[in-house]
Design a binder for these strands. Sequence first.
DNA 1: TAGTGGTCTAGACCACGTA
DNA 2: ACGTGGTCTAGACCACTAG
Lengths: 236, 236
Amino acid sequence: MVKHFSAPYDRSMSRHDEIRQEMLRRINDGEWPVGSDIPHEMVLTEEFGAARGTVRRALSTLVEQGLIERRKRAGSRVVGQTSQTSKLHIPLIREEIESRGHAYSYRLLEREVKPGLHGIGTRNGLLWVRCLHLADGAPFQLEHRTINLDTLPQAAEQPFRVTGPNEWLVREVPATRVITRISAAAAEAEIAEILAVPEHAPLLIVSRETFMGEAHLTEARLSHPAEQYQVTTLSI
Amino acid sequence: MVKHFSAPYDRSMSRHDEIRQEMLRRINDGEWPVGSDIPHEMVLTEEFGAARGTVRRALSTLVEQGLIERRKRAGSRVVGQTSQTSKLHIPLIREEIESRGHAYSYRLLEREVKPGLHGIGTRNGLLWVRCLHLADGAPFQLEHRTINLDTLPQAAEQPFRVTGPNEWLVREVPATRVITRISAAAAEAEIAEILAVPEHAPLLIVSRETFMGEAHLTEARLSHPAEQYQVTTLSI
DNA sequence: TAGTGGTCTAGACCACGTA
DNA sequence: ACGTGGTCTAGACCACTAG
């Protein structure tokens, strides 16, 4: 006799979420231990009394979460924490500061057009901007930014005197690919002075490169005093 | 007359990927500018000559990428870089070191059972481990780890003498939720000595808390000399 | 309140990789 | 070789929300 699963009545959850929850429970309770094969799609389809697409959607989410892996012809199996990935979300710096209850302010430090480098911005050059983002008047983030004037010629007309490049980019420019690098470094003398920290103080540095398709759009190097800032990510 | 889109013949890409590529092109070329509404599902379905589910799959991927947002009854629209999220993948430290072509080695520094804290591990206590991961014999990562013995009592039997806790966790324990925090700090005297860096040298610190459902499993604080390590994320 | 996106079903065909 | 997962179709109903 086939054992049918039925979730406790709850319309706040879609069917594929209910099924995924039940699958999570089985993994959690050791009914589906790490390394073991889980039943085939058709078996699950029958057991849950749902369409194959719905079961597949639940399974796909578990794959995204890195809890199971699927191999054609060989079924699916539970995996350990190996492939755990998290979602990193870096908000607009103004939103970040305001969400902490501080007053945001902005200061443009430098702005000039430089010749292109390494095949980037070789026609129109690169717009180079250095600016400071402050929380309650205290330096919070130092931004070094270059904008590719070949792919974003409109940027040349932006003064960036009262709002930073990021505000403009968010409003105007979509991106298909972002590379983010997070590192630590000791503050050099000039940067330390701007950020009002002692020389050699630890900094958390976030570097982002943004592309639309293959076209390089912009690059930012964001330096923060280590005490004031950390990056947080949540699982999928 | 309805204009039909047909992609260049390419069987290496699934239909929903082809459709998504074409949508990306339209966003890139400004046919669908930032802030504008894009055609409704049924219109796209007809234009691409695909089933609604296929078009929806392409759109869903764009939502994941943070390029469009969808509102019921009001259609979908292109958004800027606001909600760009990236995928953060932190591999096993051994794999990280070996992928750089270095020899991995491990050293257990400390291991003891401590009483629980804040409702975590209050029955069986917490297993507390401090260990070092080395690349070509040089300190690469200092790991402070606590394992909740209420939820993972099997950990008490693990000596962690020749392999680290992470190797065991990966093999045995699945997780549904991971919180990762990345920060910078100056090396305190004791840590500086272990990592063979000068006191107050900058460190990149990765902290991870892992859960299965609501149950707290383990927590790790991973300290790296800033020169040797950075975290990289790619867009979805 | 009407129309949009969100979900689900039942079916089909196909490519791929493991046994 | 063949059974698995991957993809796609055509249809239906529903919930939410903007107008």
